[in-house]
Write a protein that binds this DNA or RNA. Sequence first.
RNA 1: GGCUGCGUGGCAGAGUGGUCAUGCAGCGGACUGCAACUCCGUUAACGCCGGUUCGAUUCCGACCGCAGCCUCCA
Length: 458
Amino acid sequence: MLQIHNSLTKQKEIFTPIEPGKVKLYVCGMTVYDLCHVGHARVMVVFDVVTRYLRASGYEVTYIRNITDIDDKIIARANENGESIQQLTERNIAEMHQDADALGVIRPDQEPKATEAMAEMVAMIETLIAKGYAYAADNGDVYYDVSEFETYGKLSGRNIEELRSGERVAINEAKNDPLDFVLWKAAKPEEPSWDSPWGQGRPGWHIECSAMSANCLGEHFDIHGGGQDLQFPHHENEIAQSEGAHGCKSVNYWMHNGFVRIDDEKMSKSLGNFFTVREVLKNYSAEVIRYFILTSQYRSPLNYSDESLEQAKSALTRYYTALRDVDALVDVKWQDDADYGVRFKEAMDDDFNTALALSVMADVRQALNKETDNKQARYLAGLLNSFGDVLGLFQQNAEDFLSGGNDDEAAKIEALIVQRNTARAEKDWAKADQVRDELNEMGIVLEDNQGKTTWRKA
RNA sequence: GGCUGCGUGGCAGAGUGGUCAUGCAGCGGACUGCAACUCCGUUAACGCCGGUUCGAUUCCGACCGCAGCCUCCA
């Protein structure tokens, strides 16, 4: 039975969907003013695996991941670049898709954009005002009156008193209370704006997710995910908005993934210590990044380092080496496997423990390497692929992974291998080793197996 | 300051009241012309101090250290 750690209750709970057999999932996606970094990659990969596993478990999943395409940073960046907001956001959306595709992340069923949900947002704000949860200020802004929402703070484990005593609450004279948050911002000159009952303006950040999730999934849905940093205030405010406007519980299970860190510090744009996916891809294949992300449970911090990437690369190389020479059966389903399959399920059912699931796969790999019976070996390889489908691993041809995309050099490498094998046949070891050294310098490792020589990228 | 969470072997990272994680690396061996791959074996851990217990890395408490949130952030 699947258990999910619910941020709302801070404990693992048995997952029960609202509608049997169906799961409605909403994840907060990117604000598209720049390229994705490894932290964004983690969110995408984690919830990709959640979706894949739910589907493999028989659920029909509707997966929504929004795109924030209007906010302060976007406006600022577009101005800096001297381009339109649309140019900036469209380009970054394309870049994001490129990264996500490289990482083997399946596209969400819908990717709603904030700018395409203006009518829904305005309507929701009107409802909130009508119900007394929000007020229009003199300056044209509309604010949410936090004191009106009784359970404000339930997600982040705070109460209004605590928040009020915090040192960093910004002072804003238009608000009745510093804790109130903005639903609608009056337009400043030169800023993009939309019509509203409160004049020209644009939405606050939080309202878009309340509007779009309700729009795509309904007022009450199963799982809402995102990075841990969104828990407060973003998701807290989302609850206040959605539940205030709709008068019902909005989300059953809140899932928050841990941060990617560098030297024990959160990787973030504001700290400037981030690596974009694009940068990392120059040195490591996307699948290595994906494997690295899956080596830790999604709620744990994940420390980014070259060493960790190297470890992931070595581990993945061993899997592909094991898979390379076997003609895997294609119709193997891990769900039918009484040994490894059961252990894999137990791991994944326990709040998507991919780290533990990978250890099961390591056992399968070893069994595969030891297996002398060809039929059984083909089964084990198929099993490994079947697990890989859930984690989004082993989706490429083993040869392609191991050659590291060195196709242009392949002919040269093959020629050198022939040279070396000729030398070996003549027992000219000096010559054979010299050729191998030459290949090593090209970053190519040779493997002599059962009279056959294969190569891979180091 | 308030609120969360965390501290496991060289590194990464699961987990458990009393036999094993696993991966990377290391060491010894088999295989190999030598390597690589693979296999076999192997080393090594549970922040600190108390408490509960027959027994605690695992439960409880104090302490120390770290991170995150309280402001935009995945």
